[in-house]
Amino acid sequence: MQTKRMTFSGKWLPYALLAPQVIITLIFFIWPSFQALRQSVYRQGDAFGIRPDTFVWFDNFKALFADPLYLNSLKVTFVFSVGTTLLSMSVALLFAVMVNRMIRSRDSYTTFLVWPYAIAPAIAGVLWWFIFNPSIGIMPYMLDMVGYDWNHRRDGNDAMIMVIIASAWRQISYNFLFFLAGLQSIPHSLIEAAAIDGASRFKRFWTIVFPLLSPITFFLLVINIVYAMFDTFGVIHATTEGGPAQATNILVYKVYRDGFVNLNFGSSAAQSVVLMGIVIVLTVIQFRYIERRVNY
């Protein structure tokens, strides 16, 4: 591979150019990570310094995995991220296949379908909060007409469905773009050859198109799980705040609740260390896969 080498005249210039990125990384990523690691093995003292922080080894972690609320949060997170990923990816794939079939209107549909991605998660949350609001929302009103009593403030399942829809909505745009690009990179003659080979439309999709999309599908799978687990704080905060009765209290939201609302910093730090571990595992899977990214 050809690389372009840049030569700087002074010694300080390259460092100065790198500095902003390095400083941001240090202040907002590395330092807090070490803080969390440190705090996770301490028991927080009081605010007046009467009782100092005490070193408690892994007590915070032990307490965590014995806590039914935390185990519930793990389960909720699992359901939530699987639901969000499946919903956003399947709908995105459906849209991509449909848009890919269009000829003249393809560009305008693409533009419209990408718009939701530009909306901040918290705003999206508020939007869905209005749509699903049991008193004034349009969805409960329509569901009531078919005999379903929607109330996500009371019913944990309703709440889960709402946050999954609200979180997936935005991610559909992102997935859609990747799927569309993937579909467009499949040579048309392959589909034609399969048609001559007697494969029905449905069969062509599952035996030719879908396998050829698999590298993209896997990439999006990891990206979407990471999104669902870590980037959906805003959606949860703007809609259910983890309720009702912990039904939507995903791990990231619980870190915030336990740390900044309930001021249990030791537990909160231990939880973020667990999350860090999950991210590392997902990243390793991702990179290992990307190294041999072509599966055919």
């Binding site: 003659s189 392959l190 050859a193 001559i196 035996t207 055919y296």
Partner: peptide
């Protein structure tokens, strides 16, 4: 196309990249 009982050889061959040669022929 499938009902016309014809076979076509494409300019870019249009082989199914994720299948072995055997499966390409057998598809």
């Amino acid at each position: 196309p499938a009902e016309r009982d014809i076979a076509m050889v494409f300019q870019n061959y249009a082989l199914y990249p994720h299948m072995t040669v055997f499966n390409n022929l057998a598809y």
